[in-house]
Amino acid sequence: MNFPARPLSIGLALALCVSSLSCGTAAFAQNSKKIEWHRCLITIYKSKNQVPQACEEYAALVNLDPKDAQIRFEYGAYLHKMGRVKEAIVQYKKAADTNPGNPDYQGAVGDALVSLKDYSGALAYYQKAGPKFAGKLSTTSAYVNQLRQINQYNADLKKRQAEDD
């Protein structure tokens, strides 16, 4: 008995497509379920102020999808709030690198740098953040100018004292 080859191969290809699609959907659904449950745990730990456990859950969430900028941003915001600014900056920067067009991510890096008193570093991120952070940009740049002038004045003062001596 001879079967026509082309229809058979088309059928096989179709079946393969459908099965791979269904597998992909299942994997995606499974992942979103995991994300959901991790988020539940994060909310619980946050409410109980269990910082290490919450960070652990955030880390697990980041590992699930390292390219998810929003999760990194939220993790960064939590670390920032808990006073772990340097770790927060790492997460913020990764979020900003993944999605450079998001002003919140860029601005968050700027804010974190400001809290570390790295004003000139913050300026660069506020500039990238655009109009949403225009106020912070102008304030910080004015402050940076003032600092520069103070430093200049102090340097001049020292120089004059040295000359007088």
């Binding site: 659904a29 979103s32 994300i35 959901e36 988020r39």
Partner: peptide
């Protein structure tokens, strides 16, 4: 926030 991305999970359920 917790309720985001529920739909695919629901389909599987």
């Amino acid at each position: 926030m917790v309720n985001d991305r529920k739909l695919p999970g629901m389909k599987n359920r």
